[in-house]
Design a protein around this nucleic acid. Structure first.
Lengths: 120, 120
DNA sequence: TTAACATATGAACAGTTGTTCATATAATGA
DNA sequence: TCATTATATGAACAACTGTTCATATGTTAA
């Protein structure tokens, strides 16, 4: 099978090879969806800012609201999304609920993102 | 300044310390916006699937469309977004335009994401 | 030039998202 | 119990996003 000489886009047979390779390596549909869902969570600057605060300390909701100059409700809604996606965890102490980072992936992912945008 | 005994949310003074620390470490507004913008690009399963194909090979638009079973137009629109954010680069060869990954951060970011969602 | 093929793009539409507002739930102390 | 404080949440609304459709641009060969 000499697929070097094949020109693009008017062929029928040769691309089946690419399709086969891709189908082997591509994660299943559900995993792709979850992956996109995860990155969607990082794709909002309010949530990014919340994560940056949590890089520094374990913080309660109203302190987050005050620090980021946003309403308690807006912060609370976003914290829910962060928690659903296991990027933060929470702990109740009296009337307050304290949030902190769930694991190290959060830092790694954000740092890789920063490296990318700082590149040029 | 004994800020250990301070209870949450009814204080005025002590939180200024947190605010100060956060303001020091938090990237500037524009950078946060760009960072969120970058992750937004990863936050769509069509674009994720395009990137997974490009992990395997340099591919032209119509092959991407065929492989992913989507219209050429839809793929083209998404490639534009990927290119604007410097995740892919392109090269024209005759009538076709071949796309490939722009740099290694793409793989790293996606792999970190996969690790996170596969964790539990 | 003209026809045919490959890709890019603008407009439109439906579906999604983030914030606000009002209100509910939860914990504490009097 | 009741009032107060802290947090969570549902509904509504405006803003944004991804796909489709029609069409434009770009390249090649005849």
């Amino acid at each position: 099978m000499d697929n070097q000489k094949v020109e693009c886009c008017d062929t029928v047979e040769v691309h089946t090879e690419l399709v086969k390779i891709v189908e082997e390596k591509m994660p299943p549909e559900e995993e792709l969806y979850d992956l996109a869902e995860l990155f969607k969570v990082f794709g909002d600057s309010t949530r990014i800012r919340i994560l940056f605060v949590l890089f520094e300390a374990e913080v309660c909701v109203c302190d987050l609201a005050e620090t980021l100059k946003m309403t308690q409700s807006a912060i609370s809604h976003q914290l829910k999304i962060l928690k659903q996606n296991k990027l933060v965890k929470s702990r109740r102490h009296g009337k307050s609920v304290f949030y902190s980072l769930a694991d190290g992936h959060v830092r790694t992912i954000i740092n890789q993102g920063l490296e990318h945008i700082e590149e040029d």
